[in-house]
Amino acid sequence: MPRAELIERIVAVTEEYLGPASERFIYRLIRFHLSKEPTSISKKDIPKLAEWVKVSLGLLTNDKKLVDDCEKNLLKLAV
């Protein structure tokens, strides 16, 4: 899968939770925690990113199921 396509799929997953804010959110997390440009992300970065997404979403909502659901969907992109 091309890298540019991977970031689009990651954003599409988080869009279900964060809507129009998802691209800004994911790009910020990648730059801050993975120290990478979003378009250069690879499948092996996904577990770490999913972990940070889980932590960040946990701060925004008390809905644990929702957060776990998002993490699970992101991890699917790593396989």
């Binding site: 939770y17 809507g19 979403l57 909502t61 929702l66």
Partner: peptide, 11 residues
Amino acid sequence: QVKGVIYKRSL
């Protein structure tokens, strides 16, 4: 009509 469960709640 916008996507995003958490976003919609805040909106």
